[in-house]
């Protein structure tokens, strides 16, 4: 029997656990809206912009996170605008922006010669979180949770039916921006944990997984958060024992859960269809 508690005798593992759980919850909540609004790619695009900003920030020896947060927030508004205006162009524009930002980041990092940083940003460095990072995680968590709960009903309305929400006087643009702002914050902090390449999985997987089996929006949201925390925890423990990369392990656990939930979901559908016929 593996002794899981012994893992958390290391203080770096405790920090990883706390930071990871906080950001997993934020990503899962926002993910539900993003996936349903077909904005999944925005999370991905933002993480690449975030990478570019971090690389430039560290090359110019600015404090990287403080430098990249405003840039990512501005890009979030920008990406949202693009995908609202026209769908196909918006798709391509996100791809252009994210690969462009990636190229800028890699070039900046290689010119300045700090290649260890590059690896950290691309693949995450969850095991080397500082106490300051944890404070930042708590702050982002608090902001996301408070705003999400306060505006939950409006976020639902805007996600389900923009034209109805707009027609009945809900400020759709404002709430879309709120979603973009919270996503930007989560993505930048999440990059430190999961890395540029994997952070969007934290946003997308839990939402998709919970939609396999849940029938109502509130349950989808809650299940997403639970799935996200559980997958994160299992991924972290597994990566410790097998010495696998932490970010990748978490994504792989998510993938397994998705497969399991898909099977359970389709069995459930079949059973309810049978009952219906009876």
């Amino acid at each position: 029997m593996l002794d899981i508690t012994s893992i958390f005798e290391h203080s770096f593992m405790i920090r990883a656990l706390i930071g990871g759980i906080l950001i997993s919850i934020c990503a899962a909540l926002l993910g539900v809206s993003l996936v349903l609004k077909k904005y999944s790619m925005i999370g991905d695009g933002l993480s690449h912009v975030g990478f570019g900003a971090l690389a430039i920030g560290s090359a110019a020896s600015f404090p990287p996170l403080e430098f990249s947060i405003p840039i990512v927030i501005v890009s979030a508004f920008f990406l949202l605008r693009i995908s609202e205006n026209s769908k196909i162009k918006g798709d391509a524009a996100i791809a252009l922006i994210s690969t462009g930002a990636l190229a800028i980041g890699i070039t900046a990092a290689s010119l300045s010669g700090v290649n260890t940083d590059i690896e950290n940003y691309l693949f995450g460095s969850i095991l080397s979180l500082s106490n300051g990072d944890i404070v930042l995680c708590w702050t982002v968590f608090a902001v996301v949770m408070i705003l999400y709960i306060l505006f939950y009903n409006k976020i639902f309305a805007v996600t389900f039916d923009e034209s109805f929400a707009k027609a009945t006087g809900t400020k759709v643009g404002l709430y879309n921006m709120l979603i973009a702002l919270l996503t930007a914050l989560t993505v930048v902090i999440g990059m430190k944990l999961m890395g540029t390449l994997l952070i969007s999985s934290l946003i997308i997987f839990p939402a998709i997984i919970s939609m396999r089996i849940c029938k109502c929006f509130k349950m989808v949201t809650i299940t997403s958060a639970i799935v996200s925390i559980t997958s994160f925890f299992i991924g972290l423990v597994v990566s410790y024992y097998l010495a696998t990369p932490t970010g990748a392990s978490i994504v792989l656990v998510n993938l397994c859960v998705l497969i399991i939930f898909s099977i359970v979901g389709s069995i459930k559908d079949k059973i309810s269809a049978k009952n219906y016929i009876k």
């Binding site: 409006k154 639902f156 389900f160 006087g169 809900t170 939609m211 109502c216 929006f217 509130k218």
Partner: peptide, 20 residues
Amino acid sequence: PMQKEFPASVFEVVLSGRLN
């Protein structure tokens, strides 16, 4: 078209009409 796949209960959808 997006709404077709939307996971929301009937009650949640109807209730959202009260937001205004």
